[in-house]
Write a protein that binds this DNA or RNA. Structure first.
Lengths: 267, 267
DNA sequence: AACGATGTTTCATTATTTGGAACATCAGAA
DNA sequence: TTCTGATGTTCCAAATAATGAAACATCGTT
């Protein structure tokens, strides 16, 4: 996943990723099987990470899991490195006005990273979706962002896509996707016709800075059981208002110090 | 905060913490002023962290902020290292039944770490509270957990407390706090009488494993404008039911592999 | 043009990381 | 019990990677 490891720090973070990829706490022996690092090295790295609170070691059964220090760091990351704090109130009203589920996403090295969510029906838990990643090529928010990237940025990111066919309607090749992106750019919004998950459809619009840089995207999601694309598209004006409001606020936001104009910083 | 840095990795994570502590993206020069590391070392570490996606560098104004990779990692941490996924549905119903704001917290090196929340009134955003830390000695969840720790664990954690007086009712000394903890243990629940924030009161109960180990705590919070402690205490039976349900599920949870009995792993 | 402040690179020195291998610990089988 | 295989922990000389003072570059200001 991450590029060739720079030095010790890179290796340590690779170990962290390995543990993170696991469903359950993991034994040292298992870790060793998955890692290319020699036993002693891996052992010392894990020890260091435990010392630092990034990993937790359960002595009773000798397993490693991610440490709570990460949750703390992530809170800070979410606060200062995502659009979520800015978008907060706008997502609230969009969710209330439409009665639909709302997602806020940003681009993260070729993948879609969900940074916030409003669930109109059930009371929403907190981390359940923020932090999740999804492919860019088959999600509404992903396609909304792709459609408005520079040509070279797009090329780079398309090269990273797997084009796995999740459902019969998945756009499973670069050519087909590029066609779809053109339509998306022309219309100003993207759709997801059960392309990632059967029964789930959505419409999505990008959040664009004043200089037309892609900052993120917002989507309205529905189930095919309760709604259809036509009905979702009826909410496009609401959605447009929302993304424009976020963009506006993001432009004013950009750090007052030094009087610069930069809006979003994302991968 | 974190102990004497082990090696390069420790230093790198210290840099990460420095950036995380900042309200806004930070310049290199500022970073250097706050760090004891020599310029070149600090520079290279920051570079490495950027390479690794842990930091983001905005070239337009030369600022560093936390990277989105952290949000991804935190999602995994939340999933596998916190009680939140287990407690999810129980917090939902507690919130619905009582109509109150619900917090789920765990202990994190002497501090209270909030890992989930239900806000009965407004639609709840996601990271806004999960990941936040608060002192243990003046919060409901903190006192609920402290009251049920082993003597030596308690001693260790009390040594870390600042006993800063946030409000007139803050228990601002170890002696007074210890008295309060005894009452808490006797009653089985803790209260917060505006001890951390004026106008905010709560009742809280610990989540205890079968072996009586403290796994976390759940609280019901209210405003003095709308309610009082007596009314909150009326919900104690609901709260008790909730923490017992979580404890029960946590005990069944503990990793099926290897047939061990361990429940919670926390700092 | 000269200045001060911030950001970036260099390179010989030094300290840290490295990893093969020995050692330790434990559970189950004979 | 003793043996055996698997897992976890420690050692230490060799190799590598981190170090940091200082030089250099870049920019905005006077």
């Amino acid at each position: 996943m991450s590029a060739a490891g720079d030095g010790t720090v890179g290796k340590a973070l690779d170990v962290l990723d390995l543990v993170a990829a696991q469903e359950k706490p993991i034994r040292f022996a298992e870790l060793q099987r998955m890692s290319v690092l020699p036993k002693a090295t891996l052992y010392r790295l894990a020890q260091t990470l435990v010392n630092q609170g990034m990993l937790v070691h359960n002595p009773e059964n000798g397993t490693y899991s991610l440490g709570v220090r990460l949750v703390r760091l992530a809170h800070a990351a979410w606060r200062q490195a995502s659009l979520a704090p800015i978008a907060r109130r706008h997502l609230d009203s969009l969710s209330v006005d439409t009665g639909l589920t709302v997602h806020l996403a940003q681009m993260d090295y070729g993948h879609v990273l969900y940074v916030d969510k409003r669930n109109a029906l059930e009371p929403a838990a907190m981390f359940t979706d923020a932090g999740k990643v999804a492919p860019a090529y088959c999600t509404g928010v992903g396609k909304a962002m792709l459609a408005f990237l520079d040509a070279d940025e797009l090329d780079q990111i398309l090269g990273m896509q797997s084009f796995h066919r999740f459902t019969p309607t998945t756009l499973a090749s670069e050519a087909v996707l590029r066609q779809s992106l053109e339509r998306t750019r022309a219309r100003g919004f993207a759709t997801d016709r059960e392309e990632h998950e059967a029964g789930v459809i959505c419409v999505a619009m990008p959040i664009l800075s004043e200089e037309e840089r892609v900052l993120g995207a917002v989507s309205l999601t529905g189930s095919t059981l309760r709604t259809d694309l036509k009905s979702l598209e009826a909410h496009i004006p609401c959605l447009r208002q929302c993304v424009e409001a976020i963009a506006e606020e993001a432009s004013h936001w950009a750090f007052p110090v030094e009087g610069n104009e930069t809006g979003g910083r994302l991968g």
